[in-house]
Amino acid sequence: MLRDIDARELIPQREPILMTQTLYEASGNDARTGFVISQDNMFLEDGHLSEMGVIENMAQSAAATAGINTYINGEKPVLGYIGEIKKCIFHRLPEAGETLTAEVHYISEAAGVVLYNISSHTENGPCAECRMKVFLEK
């Protein structure tokens, strides 16, 4: 089992749109990531992370999960794009200072597209859930 990997080792996104920080642990094709929402985050609106910020956190968490094998092989992170978002429900938009945790669950993959179920929460409760396809550039 892998633990506490810097997300920058897994995905090519950087500031100001690096929206996940640490892959806490990975097991099989699933993983859990963490992200402390800073006061100067580009997706903050009236002190809350916007829906777009919440989605981007889930997307980068999924891309980081998909990037584990590349990391293990000692290769540079590949570009991953959102292919599709489905059944995305927002429960609560977190505030700056909270730690956003994303749980990424692998479902299937075909033709370079990986399908995940993802949910996110902070210490103050659930934030969002969705089914997402991530397209990986090979």
Partner: peptide
């Protein structure tokens, strides 16, 4: 190419 994985997931 995006929806092929939906068929795979459904069959699984």
């Amino acid at each position: 190419s995006l929806s092929l994985v939906d068929m795979v997931a459904l069959i699984e």
